[in-house]
Design a protein around this nucleic acid. Structure first.
Lengths: 223, 223
DNA sequence: TAGATTGTTAATCGATTAACAATC
DNA sequence: TAGATTGTTAATCGATTAACAATC
């Protein structure tokens, strides 16, 4: 009780020093807090408690406080966290305060749904190009973007500094798009198709699988 | 080395006995394996190794073998796991071998994209009803389903034994749909809008947040 | 046999939780 | 002051990883 941890320097006490990479778990959780905070701000919320963050993220409130307190004392006891300032603190920690350009593949229902959503824009991702193979769709306007032909992929990626490729094409066409993205030097692929994509190890694929979450939710409902 | 664990019965050795609930983590991981296996089967794969499952799920191969070996010896050394039989084993473990009915709200781009996807059907979820508020859309045919008016929600949920409500409406309309689902007794809500939904504690909300994964991927790309 | 991959152990690391003093 | 909620500790639990014998 009296023993002071002045000299001690456990790794587990290090928390996150500048220049150190966050652990996978911490980065994932901070991203989720940011998502909720961004939406809470839209809804006009000024403060939020760790309990409320927990309700929305299903992450334990103690862990949320712990994650945040590793970087500073952002909260106010008895009140909670200021939404605005916590958004900017987390953005600083995740170093995603800037703008990043993404390209969207597929101008079908899913592609159009993504293009018209705020979800990427809210987090600093700007869709700078949209592609499709269908000649009857190429050239049409979607919001402020003209749908382009796949042939322009390499040029657009280079000119617009695209860092993420979002695949919203049918499963049968997804691997071909991924191959082209890899050739163009894109290192992050976001896959909304069901296709299992083959890519070199330096490229990260994130496959969005809503049915997985559903299976999981159902298990706890049934048992 | 010689010591045999005959009498020992650590909790950590219990693994999962019948009738016991899986831990959150195990259930989530098994669901992900199932997603990959289902797709691998579609692609005509007969066997798959823990290493390949790891490539697709980003889950450590040792942990995959560990998770599976808790329920039986499903693999063949030097070969891997039989895709077909592993799919049925995991379905048994997750008790999701049956069919479950879901209702879809919103017949916009996102709703249409979901309705035309195989992803839910592949895992035994059947979309039995589709709803929209727009009178010009109500009554139109989407695949084998007629778009219905929200007023029929309660009746349809009861008659068709709907266990999951999928929300694919604009953020501003999402809470109203959630309220109606709660009134109708639905306990699992799948939220594709950005809205933070308020529901009673016995209802589970899963919000799909693609931008979260993107932030997370970007962090490791930038650092 | 040779190569590959499982099943399993053991050691470590990180997540989870309860509890509570500090303090707004 | 009274109530609420953070920041932090300590204890436990589960995840991660390396390693390797077993065996297909």
């Amino acid at each position: 009780m009296i023993e002071q941890a002045v000299e001690r320097h456990d790794v587990s006490d290090e928390l996150i020093v500048d220049g150190e990479r966050l652990s996978l778990g911490v980065a994932a959780r901070l991203s989720r807090y940011l998502q909720v905070l961004t939406q809470a701000r839209k809804m006009g919320r000024e403060t939020i408690s760790s309990q409320e963050l927990s309700d929305y993220t299903h992450i334990n409130p103690t862990q949320i406080r712990r994650d945040l307190s590793g970087f500073g004392k952002f909260g106010k006891r008895g009140v909670g966290y200021n939404v605005d300032s916590l958004v900017s603190e987390i953005r600083k920690i995740l170093r995603t305060a800037g703008q990043h350009n993404i390209a969207l593949f597929g101008a079908g229902n899913l592609g159009l749904a993504i293009a018209s959503s705020d979800i990427f824009a809210d987090h600093g991702f700007q869709i700078v190009a949209m592609f499709d193979v269908d000649p009857s769709v190429v050239g049409t306007q979607v919001g402020s973007l003209a749908v382009r032909d796949f042939g322009e992929l390499g040029k657009v990626v280079a000119e617009q500094e695209v860092v993420v490729g979002v695949i919203a094409v049918p499963a049968t066409a997804a691997q071909a798009v991924a191959d082209r993205l890899v050739d163009a030097g894109v290192k992050i692929i976001f896959n909304y198709s069901e296709q299992l994509l083959q890519v070199p190890p330096e490229v990260t694929v994130h496959t969005s699988s809503p049915a997985v979450d559903l299976l999981y939710a159902l298990y706890f409902y049934l048992t």
